[in-house]
């Protein structure tokens, strides 16, 4: 293997997609197929247990897609990402309970609070480079949890319970397990699509420039600090929405849900799936959240097997299941022909 060779500038062995299978995987319809599968699964298995597991997995996908903006696109290692979910869940829970409002009306407040949280954590720390940033975010994650554990407004160690549902109009209750699953899947799909589209925009490119070479990005007029802060804020908002769904799903929020292990698991989903590639990250998140449930038959050994599988994957696919490919179409067809005709090609 080539681990001992400096491969930073050597060509990778990745090739443009060629086989029909890889073409299917790269096709634009794949996301819709995945969404269709997610929406059809309850028709096959709709036990309360399976709905619960699948809803949890969908929320986990949302968290992973948010963290992918921060870690995968922008290259900022965040070890305390779950803090943003905590901010979202607590904000939604406290406001909904205090005013007896359906959770859906707490969305504006959650957006404001998570943007603020992103700014407060990001503004002082984003001047730091990789390793230092990781340690500081780890600290912030724990600070958030311990603060929630000690404040009375957050209900202390026992947290908040009896949080109202998302929305209820007459007999139609979004809290119904099957209905809530569909709502979650649709919300998560929208956020995953939005994150993927952001990744392919001017802002998404700026994030990648910062990840690849901060100085070169700066020399091109990209204000790297602002760009990093944007990544942080987007990640925070994604986490906040995860928090709303989480609060609605369990109708209770407590500090034990936001321990460091949760941050580590979300990060693992991003790394395992393939940093920077939203499709890979979705798969990574599904594996991380569903595998322990599928291994339930192994009872006490299931986390041992889970850990072993993760190690095996990282040995054979160090870039993750499905890393971001640096390929795009050569020419947009007529563009070059038109220019050739105009004679502007030199």
């Amino acid at each position: 293997m080539s681990e001992n060779v400096d491969t930073t500038l050597a060509p990778r062995t990745t090739r443009p997609p060629a086989s029909p299978i890889s073409r299917l995987f790269e096709s634009k319809q794949l996301g819709w197929i995945a969404l269709a599968i997610a929406l059809l699964i309850p028709l096959l298995i709709a036990t309360p247990y399976s709905l619960n597991v699948m809803t949890t997995a969908a929320i986990f996908v949302l968290l992973a897609s948010g963290l992918n903006i921060v870690v995968g696109y922008c290259g900022l290692l965040d070890l305390g990402y779950i803090a943003f979910m905590a901010v979202g869940a607590y904000t939604a829970g406290i406001i909904a309970k205090a005013f007896d409002l359906p959770l859906i009306f707490t969305i504006p407040a959650v957006i404001i609070m998570t943007v603020l949280a992103g700014l407060i954590i990001g503004a002082p720390t984003l001047r730091l480079r990789s390793d230092y940033l990781a340690i500081v975010t780890l600290g912030f994650g724990e600070i958030t949890r311990i603060t929630a554990n000690n404040l009375s407004i957050t209900g202390g160690p026992s947290g908040i319970f009896g949080i109202p549902g998302l929305l209820k109009i007459g007999d139609f209750d979004l809290q119904e397990p099957a209905v809530f699953y569909y709502v979650t899947v649709l919300v998560v799909a929208a956020f995953v699509l939005a994150a993927a589209r952001l990744g392919k925009s001017r802002l998404g490119r700026a994030w990648r420039f910062v990840r690849e070479d901060e100085d070169a990005a700066e020399a091109m007029g990209i204000h790297t600090y602002k760009v990093k802060l944007m990544a942080y804020i987007f990640g925070a908002v994604w986490g906040g929405f995860g928090g709303i769904l989480f609060a609605a799903h369990l109708s209770a929020v407590s500090p034990q849900s936001f321990v460091f292990l949760q941050s580590a698991l979300v990060l693992m989903a991003v790394v395992l799936g393939g940093m920077g590639n939203m499709r890979g990250v979705v798969i990574g998140a599904l594996v991380i959240s569903l595998l322990p449930e599928l291994l339930r038959d192994l009872s006490t050994y299931r986390y041992l097997v889970f850990g072993l599988l993760l190690v095996v994957v990282m040995v054979f696919r160090p870039q993750g299941f499905w890393p971001a490919r640096g390929y795009e179409p050569e020419r947009m067809g007529d563009v070059s022909d038109r220019r050739l005709a105009k004679g502007t090609v030199r």
């Binding site: 500038l9 001017r202 490119r205 990648r208 420039f209 990005a217 007029g221 990209i222 640096g326």
Partner: peptide, 17 residues
């Protein structure tokens, strides 16, 4: 000081930010 993992076109797009 290019962006090694990004495509040629993306690298040029950096100048157009």
């Amino acid at each position: 000081r290019l962006f090694p993992d990004l495509t040629v076109l993306d690298n040029v797009r950096a100048g157009m930010h």
